[in-house]
Design a protein around this nucleic acid. Structure first.
Lengths: 196, 196
DNA sequence: GAAAAATACTAACAAGTGTTAGCCGTCGAT
DNA sequence: ATCGACGGCTAACACTTGTTAGTATTTTTC
């Protein structure tokens, strides 16, 4: 029953989702067609439906895979016994690294979630809201403990998340700056801005 | 020859572009249809073509209007005789304010430029590259003059532009934080991260 | 090797896409 | 009063969309 198609030991469904993520990023979810996708997979459009149920199921899979991964990692950080600054640094580094090596998935989760059908859309947004809230709580704690400067936690979260998400416009022109330098400099900037 | 339709003294073409910007933001350029737009304007789809030439002409108009506005303001700042820190602060404040009161236009210019047809796409991207380069030059000068901490200028620009662009996800949930507080806190964070 | 399950294909659907042609009414200018 | 431009309308075009039915072909299981 299992199939070992594609390049490595991955389901055809996984291959489809991988190709789709590349396509969705390039053209946007709305402008990417199933016939486009089929051609990239090397198959006729109708054949895709033996592995997936609909176009938007692909989007759902990608968005929630990313959301869950971030959520899981946040819980791990939260339950650690580091300082609040170290916690934020860990989260920032994680975001940067995921952006670097799961670029396509994260880009789509960041930019194409608008096209999720209900009730997934509401679900996704509520998960996102919760994530940001919990990041804000860490910063609030950091301020209370005197480890961070007095700043609106929500604005700080906004800046941090937007900044790492902006790496997408670096991805193409990765000429001058290396990945390590990018991470180092970003952490420097973003953490210095928090420190008291 | 001029017509005084819409609400204020604005051309019908301007009304169309305004409605379109709202629609493109909500559904994305690809998913927004001309019939959708027509309905919002209060007219049949075909009638739109008495005022515009194509769907993508609308996108071009919006994208280049925004790009030119930013470019003009950058030139003004560049030619001033303020310190490099003041220059960056002025630019950041300008970005935030434009994001607040020209939200729809800027959002589209930020997120939907991918759908520009050539040669406008290349043109747009080159203008964007130039803008970032010149911002980076200001920061480089700030470092050389000892006003800013040693940081990769390109990364700093990336962070700043992404952060202000991220205000879009604030726009909807503008409950807790006021516009002034948002600006104050953002400037605080972003400038503190630069200062030596 | 036969039976069964999985997955490919072709053809087609109903709906929606941007856009054009051609027509008709409403104005302001001559 | 007439002309001509303007801007609205209806119909239609040529295509693309996501998706389904039905059938053939390949692959797995026994």
């Amino acid at each position: 029953m299992a199939k070992i198609q594609g390049k490595k030991n991955s389901t055809k469904k996984e291959v489809i989702i991988e190709k789709a993520s590349k396509l969705f990023r390039e053209k946007g979810f709305g402008a990417a067609s199933m016939r486009d996708l089929a051609e990239n997979v090397g198959v006729e459009a109708a054949s895709l439906y033996n592995h997936i149920q609909s176009k938007s199921e692909i989007l759902q899979t990608i968005c929630f895979k990313v959301a869950n991964e971030f959520m899981t990692n946040l819980e791990q950080v939260e339950s650690s016994s580091e300082s609040t600054l170290k916690k934020m640094e860990a989260i920032i580094r994680l975001h940067i690294r995921m952006m670097l090596d799961q670029y396509e998935f994260i880009y789509i989760s960041d930019h194409e979630w608008r096209h999720l059908p209900e009730p997934y859309l509401s679900n996704f947004l509520s998960q996102r809201r919760s994530y940001r809230k919990r990041l804000g709580d860490i910063i609030e704690e950091g301020i209370a403990k005197g480890e961070m400067k007095h700043i609106d936690p929500y604005v700080a979260v906004l800046i941090i998340l937007s900044a790492v998400s902006g790496i997408d416009s670096w991805q193409r022109s990765r000429k001058s700056t290396s990945a390590e330098a990018l991470e180092t400099n970003m952490v420097k900037y973003l953490i210095e801005g928090l420190k008291k």
